[in-house]
Every structure is written in C-alpha cells, then in structure tokens.
Design a protein around this nucleic acid. Structure first.
Length: 426
DNA sequence: TCTGGGGTCCTAGGACCC
DNA sequence: TCTGGGGTCCTAGGACCC
C-alpha cells in the first residue's frame, strides 16, 4: 500500500512576506490579488478578524485603520522563488515528489516508517528543516491516498479533534479513530468537493467526510460523477491517483488581466492583447512548445450591473503551429478585430494559446508555403529579456498607452531574485 | 470608486459518418 | 402517411483546484 505525505506552507504568501518583514509577525496580514483586488492569502490574525478568502479589498479596507490590518500587493517573483527552495528541501526526504501547486507537494513515504522511528517523527523532521532553512511554517498530512493525505493535512492544520503539532498521520490510527476524525470534517473540505457539489451532497444528507466515505460508490457514480466515485474510494484508503513526478506538458497557456481602469477603444485593447499574446508566447517557448490556435476574449465587468454588458471570444486557427511572437500577436489582434464592439467599458481581456505541440514536430502547410523562420530572432528576444528583465524588448510601441495597466500599491521588493531587492543590513 | 489569474478534467450535445 | 441505429469526434460549458 502506498503512503502519501502532503506538505504545504501555512498561509504561504503571508509567510513568504514575513520571512523578510519580521515586523509583520503577529499582525493581521493579507496578500492581495492582481490589481489589489481581493484577499488571496491571510495570516491567522487576519482570519481571526473575519477576513474571508477572496473578499474584495475595498470591503475590508476599513480594517487597516480599525485593526491594524496590513495589505500587501502580490509579489509572485518572491513566492515562486521561495516555493522552489521549499520544494528542493522537501525533495530530499523521498526519491519521489510531486509538486502540486506553488505551496504544496506530495511526497512518497512508502516504506519509510522505520527511518526515523515513525512517519510522524519523519513528518516533524520535514517541517523543522523547512522552517529552519527558509523560515516557512508547514503542515504535513500522511495517509494511504492523496485525498486522505489532503484530509490529514487539513486535520493537522485546523487541529481537528486534538492538537497535532503540525503532523497528522492517519496510517497510524485504527479505522475507528480515523472515522471519528472524518466525522468532524465538513464534506466541503474534502478534496474535489467544491461549493456546488457540497450543496448537493448536504441536501442528500451527506454532510461530513465520513458520510461521503460511507456512500455507495456506484450510487455516487450514477448520480454525480466518476470523479466523485474515485473520491469515495480514496476516502476508504483505496488510492485511485498515483504520483505524477514528471511534469506533464501543458495543454493551454493563458495570459489575461483585469484592467486598472475601464478600457474603451480598440486601440487600447490592442495594446493589452498584444502584450498578453507576447507574454503567453514567451511561456510557450520556454516550455519548448508551439501553438496551433489562438483564443482571444474581451469582457465588460459583470460587477457593474448598471453598465451594458458584453463578452465575447474567438478562436483563430493557425495554418501551422508556431512559437513565434510576431505571428501569435498578429493572430490575436485579428481575433480582437472580430470581437471588438464600440460603446462598452471593457474590464478584462486575455489570450489563450491552444492545441500545443512539441516544438520539434514539424508539419508543413501544403498551401501557404514555408513560414518565415524566426527562431534565432525569438531566441535573441528571450535571451535579452532573461538577462535584462521582462519587457526590455517588446513588440510594438507599448509606452504611453498604459490605461489598462493594473495597480499594485503595496508591493514588497523581490528580495531573492533581483539585486536591487536584496535585503541589506542597516 | 474599488471584485484575480492560471490551470485540469468531465460531460452533454451536435455534426458527421456508414 | 410513413423517416434507424450505432459509432466517433469536437466543442462549449461546468465544476473543480490552488
């Protein structure tokens, strides 16, 4: 039987910020989404103030004055770098590690129970090393399936049933004790049960993780989905998902943004869309991929109910898959021209690259003749931007038309990834 | 006034084929 | 007047995740 550990950083973005801003320890802290729109990470003190996940900042701004809430813009360069360090440390504890998201990974602990005396002790070693080496607090959940490992992590984090000191090993518990814990966890906390599914399950009398564990798999399959059927098996300790240690090639690449201010003209939208296409193209090449389709969308703000609403999307197929920024930008702008209607206040736009294939696979276009080869140009573009910073070389004139740019009013320095951001002793 | 971004998977239904 | 059955492929939309 496999043994999965799920390790994740507590309030990860907040914890990253506190490593370099120890003055923020103990204070209510949140990190905001792009545009300083919503709270996407909250320290325990912020949660205690009642700040909910995803709440718009303008609704809680008063807490800055009233309760000393600190709100920071998101600093993804910092979080990505801290994440890489955390994953490298955790990777030392097992030959098999699956990085699941920026702040969590699965680690294969199969057969490792005797290494440190027990899996619980081993879990503590992981936590201690991450905390000591990079200053990020974590929790560890250990179980015979991924869904149960996530559950164990939740139990450890929320101290369900009793205090756990950051590590909950469900494999060490008899079934009866395990069930008792599952009975204390609301079904919406189960991995794979979102808001919609929770409502439905609760209406059917399935209110806790234990209820779902005891549901009939075939009934769940026929009335809900095969996905939830697997969840039922996983809650029963039957692993339906294994480790995916190798990152699979992506199937789509998205670059989209909400605008800092409403955008009205096609020209301003073009500037944004061009930038999104270029950014997506950069990510595409970095992964050694080409795109066969470019999807473009624009939309007004659904929150502004008084405004006329419009949202539209179009897919522009390419004769041959390309990784060339110029051609992808061209396709995106052609898509935009088909979508654009004057008279609306646009709030968001995006570019999606689809039908991704490996760069090395060549499929010539029978009718269009050979495409201009700009591999060396693109390589030079990427090399310059790598060395001198993103946006050093861009397509077209983007200065002076930045109406769409997002606002980030409280961003900390890139402490670990830019010379200018290095913390200095004072 | 002010509400994120980037992904995956599954399913239902339509188009099309024989 | 009367109009099949079975299969594949693609796409849009929904649900979920962090």
């Amino acid at each position: 039987m496999p043994t999965f550990a799920l390790v994740d950083g507590n309030n990860f973005y907040c914890s990253c910020e506190r490593v370099f801003r120890p003055d923020l320890v103990g204070r209510p802290l949140i990190v905001l989404s792009n545009n300083d729109g919503c709270a996407v990470a909250r320290s325990q003190e912020a949660k205690d103030l009642g700040v909910k996940m995803g709440v718009p900042f303008f609704q809680i701004r008063h807490l800055v004055q009233e309760a000393g809430l600190v709100a920071l813009s998101s600093n993804y360069a910092l979080y990505a770098d801290m994440s890489a360090r955390m994953m490298a440390i955790l990777g030392q504890f097992s030959p098999v590690q699956e990085v699941y998201s920026i702040d969590e990974c699965f680690v294969d602990l199969t057969g490792m129970g005797t290494l440190a005396g027990s899996l619980t002790v081993y879990g503590q070693l992981m936590r201690e090393r991450v905390l000591r080496w990079i200053g990020i607090p974590t929790c560890v959940g250990i179980a015979p399936s991924k869904t149960l490992a996530k559950m164990a992590n939740h139990i450890a984090k929320k101290n369900v049933g009793r205090p756990w000191s950051g590590v909950c090993d469900l494999t060490a518990l008899p079934e009866r004790d395990r069930d008792e814990l599952l009975g204390l966890v609301e079904v919406g906390e189960v991995w794979g049960v979102g808001r919609r599914l929770r409502e439905r399950l609760v209406a059917d009398g399935i209110a806790t993780a234990l209820d779902l564990k005891r549901a009939s798999p075939s009934f769940v399959r026929s009335t809900v989905s095969v996905v939830l059927e697997r969840t039922v098996h996983e809650l029963n300790g039957i692993a339906c998902y294994g480790f995916e240690a190798e990152a699979q090639p992506q199937k789509q690449i998205i670059c989209s943004r909400s605008f800092g201010h409403p955008v009205l003209t096609q020209e301003d939208l073009s500037i944004a869309v061009r930038d999104f296409a270029a950014t997506a193209a950069e990510r595409l090449r970095r992964q050694g991929l080409k795109a066969g389709q470019v999807h473009v969308f624009i939309q007004t703000s659904a929150f502004r109910k008084k405004d006329k609403q419009y949202s539209a999307a179009v897919v522009v197929p390419l004769a041959v898959p390309v990784g060339d920024t110029l051609r992808l930008v061209e396709a995106a702008l052609a898509g935009l021209a088909r979508l654009y209607k004057p008279g609306f206040k646009y709030a968001k736009a995006g570019v999606m690259l689809l039908d991704l294939t490996d760069r090395t696979v060549e499929q010539a276009d029978l009718f269009a003749g050979p495409a201009p080869r700009r591999e060396r140009l693109m390589a030079a573009l990427d090399a310059v931007n790598d060395r001198f910073g993103r946006g050093t070389l861009r397509v077209g004139n983007v200065e002076g038309h930045q109406a769409w740019h997002m606002s980030q009013n409280a961003k900390t320095p890139s402490y670990t990834t830019e010379w200018e951001g290095l913390p200095t002793a004072r």
